[in-house]
Design a protein around this nucleic acid. Structure first.
Lengths: 238, 238
DNA sequence: TCTCGACCGAGAGCACTGCTCTCCAATGTA
DNA sequence: TACATTGGAGAGCAGTGCTCTCGGTCGAGA
């Protein structure tokens, strides 16, 4: 017991410091974007800038930590909203809940959203640690599709006919994605779900990166319409 | 005449220098991203860093110039590809041409693409000069819709029924957009066209910003499928 | 309980950045 | 040809990421 406790004292202090650094970094992020200043963070914490290097080997390392946190945060936001829908068979409601949760998180944390959905930091190669948190967003959508298929409301017959034919190599990849997400659906449905998600994040990018300034002011209604149209594209019953 | 010629000598030299600076900046952009270095550009041109300030008041000013150029370049790429389609009544072909041109330009100039579609540079407010070039991308799509409506192939009856109902305030805004683009179509069609474009740029963001690494390798086929599905969403006849 | 070693903070320093200011040479203009 | 506008050079300021060395502190194992 002593060993564990003793070790965890230092570890806990260290973890707290890491947390404080990340908090300050997130604050910086809001005003400075991806080119946040380590020295400014150190100043804010009342610490020499060199001290930060005891916790993060480089600025990129700190950014990586923030990126992983952001992926997990937006993923968790979607998961919680989806889990809160009690009518589990109302796939539409679950889809809308996820979409709105994503948008809500993005609007509440625009800088962190930009960190993961914006231009990659030049010369920065995303480490492998980021791929799992990054795919987390898609998992929750997969559960909706899976439940729908199992319940029969997303039966192959009920979904729209596969209109643009999918070439074989692409079909193989789409099948692999579905298998990795543990859903057994035809490639056409996988494609439509992916497209729906792509559209949503495209919409969020447009909204957050200022592409629809002076174009659409009622962003809430516009996003809502897109969410519903994408629900139709997937084939979610209403 | 002497006055004009004399003035234009200086002006021409100045324009050439500006061009050289922008060329070097674009080269920098490819490796360094948005945080390119003025001093590195100066070094590359064999010039003192302070000399650059005779041409651009600040780094942000230079970035603004690059942004405007990028908007115009991708816009023009779309326009040229669309204009090259001789079968003017084949709306589908025109749409595909535009989409592929956008993607081709993006793949050829990823850094410039990121400059206009990625996270906004922190603390950088896009000047008014950028809004016109930014909307240029949408103009070419508008012409396709307009021609389709005029030719009757995009007749209201032929387009899918307006399924998600559009709330009145949003409908007003969509009508305003259509009016600004000089197309006379119902709000539902405007919405679908906007969504199609949103999805395409969402797809390009995913592809260029690395979101579909380890997911889909056959990017060409995947983009193609998305383009065709969005053509269906708009209601372009095939 | 006590000593020792891991850990961590401080500070100086390097090479770099954007930007300003002053000085000066070149060059088109009248 | 003399002048005034233009643009380049260079020093300098405040800031950056990052490294290295030096000490102190405090939890660790004996």
């Amino acid at each position: 017991m002593e060993k564990r406790t003793a070790a965890s004292i230092r570890a806990r202090v260290r973890a707290e410091m890491i947390d404080e650094i990340k908090r300050a970094a997130r604050r910086q992020l809001a005003t400075e974007g991806a080119n946040l200043s380590l020295r400014a963070i150190a100043r804010e914490l009342g610490v020499a800038s060199s001290a930060l290097y005891r916790y993060f080997a480089s600025r990129d390392d700190l950014l990586t930590a923030l990126i992983i946190d952001a992926y997990n945060a937006i993923g968790e936001a979607g998961e919680r909203a989806e889990a809160a829908v009690t009518e589990r068979l109302d796939l539409n409601r679950r889809w809308v809940a996820v979409a709105n949760a994503w948008r809500g998180w993005a609007l509440a944390h625009p800088a962190e959203y930009a960190l993961i959905h914006g231009s990659p930091v030049p010369g920065y190669a995303a480490p492998v640690d980021t791929v799992a948190p990054a795919s987390r967003r898609f998992l929750v959508v997969a559960t909706i599709i899976r439940d729908g298929r199992r319940a029969g409301v997303l039966a192959p017959a009920a979904t729209p006919p596969e209109r643009p034919l999918i070439p074989a190599p692409l079909r193989v990849e789409l099948d692999a994605i579905a298998a990795a997400l543990d859903v057994e659906v035809e490639a056409g449905l996988t494609a439509r779900a992916l497209i729906a998600v792509t559209e949503l994040f495209g919409a969020l990018n447009f909204e957050l990166f200022g592409q629809l300034n002076n174009t659409i002011d009622d962003r809430r209604a516009w996003f809502d319409l897109q969410v519903r149209m994408m629900a139709d594209l997937i084939g979610l019953p209403h």
